[in-house]
Amino acid sequence: KVMEIKLIKGPKGLGFSIAGGVGNQHIPGDNSIYVTKIIEGGAAHKDGRLQIGDKILAVNSVGLEDVMHEDAVAALKNTYDVVYLKVAKP
């Protein structure tokens, strides 16, 4: 199931950690970017929809399929206060 989640960045950013990407696979044979941690009190935690194990398909208009881990981190960092995440639920 794919959904779009709109998050408003807090003082600590979006409030979640990711793993995965080309050269840094979270699941062997899979280059996808996965949510590995939700920080308590952060934007994602308060919103409640993003969960550990969700796959991040895109940030705003930037696709995160088959990208390097660093590029995924940069895509999440290089955002304004309002961030749209395209997410696939497991």
Results as ranks from 00 to 15, higher is better:
Glu40Phe: 11
Ile33Arg: 01
Ile52Phe: 08
Val82Gln: 12
Val2Arg: 04
Phe16Glu: 01
Ile52Thr: 14
Asn31Arg: 04
Lys1Val: 04
Gly48Val: 01
Tyr84Glu: 13
Tyr80Gly: 06
Asn24Gln: 15
Ile39Phe: 09
Glu65Val: 10
Leu57Gln: 12
Gly15Ile: 00
Leu7Val: 08
Ala72Gln: 01
Gly10Trp: 04
Lys6Thr: 06
Val2Gly: 06
Leu14Trp: 08
Ser61Asn: 12
Gly63His: 10
Leu85Ala: 01
Val67Met: 15
Ala43His: 05
His26Pro: 04
Ser32Trp: 04
Tyr84Trp: 11
Lys86Asp: 13
Ile8Tyr: 15
Val87Ile: 08
Asp66Asn: 09
Ala88His: 13
Asp81Glu: 13
Ser17Ile: 08
Tyr84Ala: 11
Met3Phe: 15
Tyr84Val: 10
Gly42Lys: 04
Val83Met: 07
Lys77Tyr: 09
Lys55Met: 13
Tyr84Phe: 12
Ile52Cys: 15
Asp81Ser: 14
Glu40Leu: 08
Thr36His: 10
Ala58Arg: 15
Asp71His: 10
Gly10Asn: 14
Ser17Phe: 11
Ala19Val: 06
Phe16Gly: 00
Ile5Val: 06
Ile56Tyr: 00
Ser17Gly: 12
Ala74Pro: 01
Asn60Glu: 05
Gly13Asp: 07
Gln51Tyr: 05
Ala74Gly: 09
Lys86Asn: 08
Gly48Phe: 02
Asp30Pro: 02
Met68Pro: 10
Ser17Arg: 14
Lys6Tyr: 05
Gly21Cys: 02
Ser17Glu: 07
Ala44Gln: 01
Ala74Asn: 11
Pro90Ile: 15
Ala88Ile: 13
Gly42Phe: 05
Thr79Cys: 14
Ala58His: 07
Asp54Tyr: 10
His45Thr: 04
Asp54Val: 03
Lys1Pro: 02
Val59Asn: 00
Gly20Phe: 01
Ile27Ala: 10
Leu50Asp: 00
Gly48Ile: 00
Leu76Asp: 01
Gly48Ser: 08
Leu50Trp: 00
Val67Thr: 11
Asp30Asn: 07
Val62Glu: 15
Tyr84Asp: 15
Ala19Gln: 12
Gly23Trp: 06
Gly41Ile: 02
Asp47Asn: 11
Ala74Leu: 13
Pro90His: 10
Ile27His: 11
Gly63Thr: 12
Ile56Pro: 00
Ile52Pro: 15
Lys9Ala: 09
Ala19Thr: 11
Lys6Ala: 07
Gly15Thr: 00
Asn24Ile: 06
Lys6Leu: 04
Tyr84Thr: 12
Ala75Ser: 12
Leu57Tyr: 06
Glu70Gln: 14
Gly29Lys: 05
Ile18Gln: 02
Gly15Ser: 02
Asp81Pro: 14
Val59Glu: 00
